[in-house]
Simulated scan of single mutants.
Amino acid sequence: MILDKTLQTPRLSLRMMSAADASEAYLGWMRDPVVNQYLESRFSVPASTQDLVRFIEYVNASSDSLLLGIFLREDGSHIGNIKIGPVVTRHARAELGYLIGDRNAWGKGYGSEAIREVARYGIEELGMAKITAGIYETNIGSAKALLKAGFKLEATISSHVICNGRRLASQLYGLDAPVRT
């Protein structure tokens, strides 16, 4: 999917990722076991910025996903990424995945701000009726960000994932589009 504009929030700019965004800092997030502990990508950590470029190009070429960088408006710092997709048009639903990789940006509400804006885009501009996000039960930061963005916990699947050698539940959060009459 292609987004030919930048989504703006009061503190963030969300724009399509490009090869130039495959920085050493981004690679460092993906290699940081604290940052990636809840990401499935921790099982195939990129070896180089070239691996990140390939990932960015792969998602950008996709017809059902959109990868956006999360940048601070005040100084342009790249602090994370958010992806909407796959978008399942026949069911008018899409999934969200996100990462605030810069640990200095944790706990400041940037995640919920980005989630809220990308969910708005998915509903209002892509015509989705439902946006979902799955997390591990111990990912308290993500749970808080989703709730703050208006999502609701819809399902818990016990013993669904392995994290740090333990079986954990996964949780599905959802946001329904307003009913149109």
Rank of each mutant, 00 (worst) to 15 (best):
V53P: 01
V53M: 03
V53I: 12
F55Y: 05
F55H: 03
Y58E: 02
Y58R: 10
N60I: 02
A61G: 05
A61Y: 00
A61Q: 02
A61E: 04
A61N: 10
S62N: 04
S62E: 00
S65F: 06
S65V: 12
L66P: 03
L66N: 04
L67T: 00
L67W: 00
L68V: 04
G69T: 02
G69C: 01
F71G: 02
R73P: 06
G76D: 02
G76M: 03
G76H: 00
S77E: 11
H78L: 03
G80K: 03
N81L: 08
K83V: 08
K83D: 03
K83L: 05
G85H: 04
P86V: 13
P86M: 12
R90T: 09
R90G: 06
A92P: 08
R93K: 15
R93C: 08
A94G: 12
A94N: 08
L96N: 07
L96P: 04
Y98M: 09
L99K: 04
L99N: 00
I100V: 14
I100K: 07
G101C: 12
D102N: 13
R103F: 01
N104G: 07
N104Y: 05
A105M: 05
A105S: 15
W106M: 03
W106T: 07
G107V: 08
G107N: 03
G107T: 08
G109C: 02
G111H: 04
S112V: 10
E113F: 15
A114N: 04
I115P: 01
R116E: 13
R116L: 14
E117D: 12
E117I: 14
V118W: 01
V118G: 00
A119L: 08
A119Y: 06
R120Q: 10
G122M: 09
G122H: 07
G122P: 10
I123H: 04
I123C: 13
I123P: 11
I123M: 11
E124Q: 15
E125D: 15
L126G: 07
G127P: 06
A129Q: 14
A129I: 09
A129D: 10
A129G: 14
T132E: 06
T132I: 09
G134P: 07
G134I: 11
I135K: 01
Y136F: 15
E137H: 05
E137I: 01
T138D: 10
T138S: 15
N139E: 12
I140G: 08
G141A: 15
S142C: 09
S142T: 01
K144D: 14
K144E: 07
A145K: 00
A145L: 12
A145R: 01
L146I: 08
L146M: 13
L147Y: 04
L147R: 10
A149Y: 06
A149N: 07
A149S: 07
G150Y: 04
G150K: 14
F151E: 00
K152N: 12
L153K: 12
L153Q: 08
E154K: 12
E154M: 04
A155S: 14
A155K: 05
I157K: 15
I157A: 15
I157E: 14
H160I: 11
H160R: 12
V161I: 09
I162R: 15
I162W: 14
N164C: 13
N164P: 08
G165D: 06
R166S: 14
R167M: 13
R167F: 14
L168C: 13
A169P: 07
S170E: 06
S170Y: 04
